[in-house]
């Protein structure tokens, strides 16, 4: 009998712990998140997506901007997954590399701008929760995640561009 009672207690304890975690997130993360995302959504809709089009087209010509500024702006303004529609502003042979750069930024951006990919926050938040639990500030991690993200998408863009050209040639031959 004691054994059964222990078992039941252990079982419900799993969900009490989970419930405590859930409560801490709902009160600790959601309120700021809601207000922040509302603000950015409103800002984007007031600026208007169309105004970014000309800018993106101009930047798409230079490889340094094509795999840094353009995907970052696309992700910020259009969010995941509509950011990939900015691919139409780059040359055909650069589209896979642009996609690679843009999609690789859909998590590094969430540290600072969670609105951009609110459905997949826990790649960052999961790890960030560990930092919070230690009583450390998240800002240095969020900033570095963003910066390293930009460097990584540039490298990804360059490597994927090379590989795309190679696979395209193979397709012809």
């Amino acid at each position: 009998m004691d054994y059964l009672a222990k078992l039941a207690e252990g079982f419900i304890n799993l969900f009490n712990l989970g419930g405590a975690t859930f409560l801490s997130w709902v009160t600790g993360i959601i309120p700021t998140l809601v207000v922040l995302i509302t603000f950015v959504n409103a800002l984007i809709s007031i600026i208007g997506e169309e105004r970014m089009d000309g800018f993106a087209k101009a930047c798409g010509k230079f490889f340094l901007l094509r795999y840094t500024v353009v995907p970052v702006i696309a992700m910020f303004v259009l969010c995941n997954p509509m950011a990939y529609t900015f691919g139409r502003f780059v040359e055909e042979k650069h589209k896979p590399a642009f996609y690679d750069a843009a999609v690789s930024f859909c998590h590094p951006i969430t540290g600072l701008f969670p609105h951009a990919n609110a459905g997949e926050l826990f790649v960052y938040l999961g790890i960030a929760n560990g930092i919070t639990a230690l009583g450390l500030s998240l800002s240095p991690l969020a900033v570095r995640y963003f910066i390293v993200g930009v460097i990584v998408i540039l490298i990804r863009g360059i490597v994927t561009e090379r590989l795309t050209l190679r696979f395209m040639k193979k397709g012809e031959g």
Binding site: P81, M82, Y84, T85, F86, G87, R88, V90, E92, K93, K95, P96, A97, F98, Y99, D100, A102, V103, S104, C106, H107, T160, L163, T164, R166, F167, M168, K170, G171
Partner: peptide, 28 residues
């Protein structure tokens, strides 16, 4: 692995030609 499941869809959102998608999937 981020976005590796989404390559053809992402590329078609960027209005890529079919040949580009064929080369782009293995490239990414």
């Amino acid at each position: 692995q981020v976005g590796c499941d989404f390559i053809p869809v992402g590329l078609s959102l960027g209005e890529a030609e079919p040949d580009t998608i064929s080369a782009g999937v293995p490239a990414v």
